[in-house]
Simulated scan of single mutants.
Amino acid sequence: MFLRLILPLLLALFPALPAAAQSAAIGFGQGDFDRSAPVEVTADNLEVDQASGRATLTGNVVIAQGDLRLSANLVTVDYATTNGNRTIERLNAEGDVLIVAGQDAAEGQTAVYTLGTSDILMTGDVVVTQAAGTLAGDRVAINLNSGAGTVTGRVRTTLQP
């Protein structure tokens, strides 16, 4: 049951993850992902609470598909029930969060991915590293549909000439 619920989340999580740059569209990993590749989930522990609609993965959590990887100390999956069907609503990653896509990487202390709006919010000394340079701030908000992002909180960047 759990794999049937989490698999759509994992497939939705791995489309194109754009990096954030103040209201600019910057492709994170260039969106070239094999969505048919197997999704691998590893963690030290898994707890599923059917009553609350939450699954919790703890300890060395790694979710990978092809060249795309999400790792964190803790990942919770929140579900919503609509017309009797349970769907994944939100993915919450905490503790040393790292998202890697090919040569691109984003790291921070937390990440929340809301599937309905296609928004990712990373907080806690976020650093996005791409071939063109680095971008950092306290908070990075990304919309997967538009590719637009905003960095706030003492924004720092390094650009290669």
Rank of each mutant, 00 (worst) to 15 (best):
I63M: 11
V127E: 04
A80F: 03
L115P: 01
L98M: 06
A106M: 04
I142L: 06
G133E: 07
Y113S: 10
G95V: 03
S146Y: 15
E107D: 04
N83T: 09
N73K: 11
E89M: 09
A80G: 00
G95H: 03
A80T: 03
A136E: 15
L121I: 05
V128A: 10
A132P: 08
T76V: 06
Q103R: 07
L91M: 12
Y113V: 12
D119Q: 12
D119G: 05
A105Q: 13
D138C: 09
T150V: 11
Y79L: 15
N92R: 14
Q65P: 06
T129H: 06
D78L: 15
A101G: 14
T110C: 11
A64Q: 14
D119H: 10
A106N: 01
Y79N: 08
A64Y: 07
E94D: 04
L91H: 08
V140M: 15
S118C: 03
A132W: 09
S118Q: 04
V128T: 08
A111M: 15
L70K: 10
E107G: 05
V77L: 15
L98P: 04
D138K: 13
T152G: 10
Q109H: 13
G59K: 07
V127Q: 09
V126G: 11
G149S: 01
L98Q: 08
A72Y: 11
N60Y: 10
A132N: 14
T123G: 04
I63W: 02
S71E: 12
Q130C: 04
A136I: 09
Y113E: 07
G59T: 10
R90D: 05
T76L: 02
D125I: 02
I142P: 02
D119K: 12
S118A: 05
V155R: 13
G84Y: 15
Q65N: 07
E94T: 02
A105W: 08
R139T: 13
G102E: 08
T81F: 07
L98V: 13
Y113I: 11
G124W: 08
G133D: 07
D67H: 00
R69I: 04
G153R: 04
S146I: 13
A72P: 09
L121H: 03
Y79W: 03
Y79M: 13
N143S: 01
S146T: 15
G153Y: 05
A132H: 09
M122Q: 09
E89G: 07
L74I: 04
A141K: 00
G66T: 06
S146M: 13
L91V: 14
M122W: 08
G124V: 10
V75W: 01
G84D: 13
L115Q: 06
G133W: 09
R154E: 12
G149W: 01
T134E: 00
D125W: 00
V126S: 10
L70S: 09
G147M: 14
L144R: 01
G108W: 06
V140T: 08
G149I: 02
A106K: 01
R90M: 06
D67A: 00
